[in-house]
Design a protein around this nucleic acid. Structure first.
Lengths: 199, 199
DNA sequence: AAAGATCTGTAGTGATCGATACGAAAAGGA
DNA sequence: TCCTTTTCGTATCGATCACTACAGATCTTT
């Protein structure tokens, strides 16, 4: 069953992983609803039946594209929280990384998780990305609260408010990059945002 | 001609202004492309031919809705810059006002100018709202630079960077409110954002 | 070589998109 | 009372949406 590496029948004529990469770029650039099946098949270099056979439907393809984004481009911010032991260093690095990747001209601007489901009708699709953003915000709060508990931050620090603030800054940076902000401008935003850090 | 107040022919059977208000709410809530003519006519209580006779087409109706928004709900932030003589007071008031109106449950969350053209295909529509955001950002920068010139802010203050930062914060607050942030949370974001103010 | 399984491109499905043709209805001007 | 003008509701238009039926092509298995 699952251990079989060669299956009978005509083999797939395209690279599934490369096609998913193209689909992710399209969703990232245009958002979920504005990216039509015709747009996707054209970008992926395949026909609709191949898309549906390989990915199920548009909704499932989007889900895989989000997972792919989270495992690649979206990883840099998560890594900042995981690798930096001190919350302040983690947040400063996260903002600088965001400034860099949001303005990287080798792919669409901004963050897929923040923008791709805006103005989308499907509540299911909106909920999927909203949960992703909520998870990031919770990670911010936990990272901050950990340093409050460790005495590295004042005991009266409001971790929830601070996490909401930095979540808003990151989302604002994403929107600014979609409006054409340069890396330098985003880095200035990142530096200014760190002035709100306690004590 | 234009002075005529009574024109011959069957009179319009609906309130044009009230219908425009309903259309604005729909665009605000769902964005430009996700708001269909069927959605609009249903909300406005009219049929498609009445909409097209009174407003031209969907694009022109959206333009009028944006103008209406700018003249009503969008005015509160502009007024903060106009009425407060000191830039710091103006920005603090603008952020507090944004926290209040973005979370006002009597209308859709967030800011129409920030969200309604996200993931929209029409470059024309995107450009219209982008220009609105750019105008706000320029107003921020001018307000800040005026206080630098007046000596109320340090001479090395980077008005452009600061304006970009506050534009990002406002856009982030709009996104947060669409994700369900409360007025209290947004007010905390506003207060934290003011910690970045110079000196 | 024959059979079974899977992928491929062509060519569609019904639903919905923005936008309209058309005739009946309702007003003012003659 | 007609005639003109404008708006009204009904019933569409072609284009595009996500999605798929179908038959030929290409593989493994027997």
């Amino acid at each position: 069953m699952g251990a079989m590496t060669k299956t009978q029948g005509r083999p797939r004529g395209f690279d599934r992983d490369a096609a998913l990469e193209r689909a992710m770029i399209e969703f990232w650039s245009r958002g979920y609803e504005a990216t039509s099946i015709a747009t996707l098949t054209s970008a992926m270099g395949i026909n609709p039946p191949s898309l549906y056979a390989a990915f199920g439907d548009k909704r499932k393809l989007f889900h895989e594209a989000v997972e792919r984004y989270a495992g690649t481009h979206g990883m840099v911010t998560v890594r900042a929280l995981a690798e930096e032991p001190v919350a302040r260093d983690a947040m400063a690095r996260l903002l600088r990384e965001a400034a860099r990747v949001y303005s990287d001209p080798s792919h669409p601007p901004g963050c897929l998780v923040i923008t791709a489901a805006v103005n989308v009708t499907s509540e299911e699709v909106k909920a999927e990305l909203r949960e992703g953003r909520a998870a990031s915000k919770r990670a911010f709060e936990q990272k901050i609260q950990a340093d409050v508990d460790a005495g590295r931050l004042p005991p009266d620090t409001d971790a929830h408010a601070l996490a909401t603030y930095y979540a808003a800054v990151v989302q604002g940076m994403s929107t600014q990059s979609c409006d054409g902000a340069t890396r330098e401008e985003l880095e200035q935003v990142a530096d200014l945002a760190m002035r709100a850090w306690p004590a």
